[in-house]
Design a protein around this nucleic acid. Structure first.
Lengths: 123, 123
DNA sequence: CATCGTTATATCTTTTAAAATATAACGATA
DNA sequence: TATCGTTATATTTTAAAAGATATAACGATG
């Protein structure tokens, strides 16, 4: 019975190291888990509006996220069209898909880090 | 000029991977950077009140943090005394010092992870 | 037993963030 | 050119978090 963390924390088996991750620039955060899920759903539905509804997010917030993301990329990764067939819609560029791919890998590496730290906590 | 992240993000040299880290249990978060700095200042000043003032935090919040932390440890790591010499004060147990030590190491490993990810972002 | 500055707690106010609501602009298509 | 559901934007309302304020309890010490 030494002074290791394991013996200091109560309900040690329930305790875990957790965190969140994002990309940021001088303009602030712009690429957390929320925006990525939104991108994926825009790809699915072809619409910011429907994507937002699908994940129970306000259109206003969804639009702000898309806007912030487009502002941080060399060229817009979400192409909006107001008006037109079926009222309009939004499509993703190949770069957007690449961002999604990158994000998945990043999240996996982070998850590995968290799991490793949580494991160390208990030994 | 391929489709790597570096070429998709604008102002690539300003962009970095950042995040936050904490310990959590069923009762919620209880060990972010704020609480740890508070512990360090309690060790310095011998008082929750003075520690809170020193880091421009309300006493109410400081007390809540200490309370939450004490609730998550096998035995309290901050020992408060209301009344007594100089009105009272609070002292840290050895376990509290051990928690601070652990936190420093954890933060360092996380910083390394973030730095590594940020570096990969630019190559 | 009065004093001191602290811990401990409740209540009220302010600030901030999020959500809800409303409305205009858009453009292919029938 | 009327219609459609979307994008785009402003305004209002609500909810939650943070902060400010007030006060009681505490106990060694002189």
């Amino acid at each position: 019975m030494d002074t290791s963390i394991k013996n200091i924390l109560k309900n040690n088996h329930d305790v875990k190291v957790n965190g969140s991750l994002w990309l940021e620039s001088a303009n602030g955060h712009f690429f957390g888990p929320g925006p990525v899920e939104l991108l994926e759903r825009i790809a699915d539905t072809g619409s910011i509006n429907m994507a937002a509804k699908a994940m129970n997010m306000s259109y206003k917030k969804a639009w702000a996220l898309v806007n912030a993301l487009n502002a941080q990329t060399s060229s817009p990764v979400v192409i909006p069209q107001a008006g037109g067939k079926k009222g309009g819609g939004s499509t993703l560029t190949g770069e957007a898909l690449e961002l999604i791919r990158y994000h998945r890998l990043l999240r996996q590496r982070f998850a590995d880090f968290l799991e490793s730290e949580t494991r160390q906590l208990k030994e």
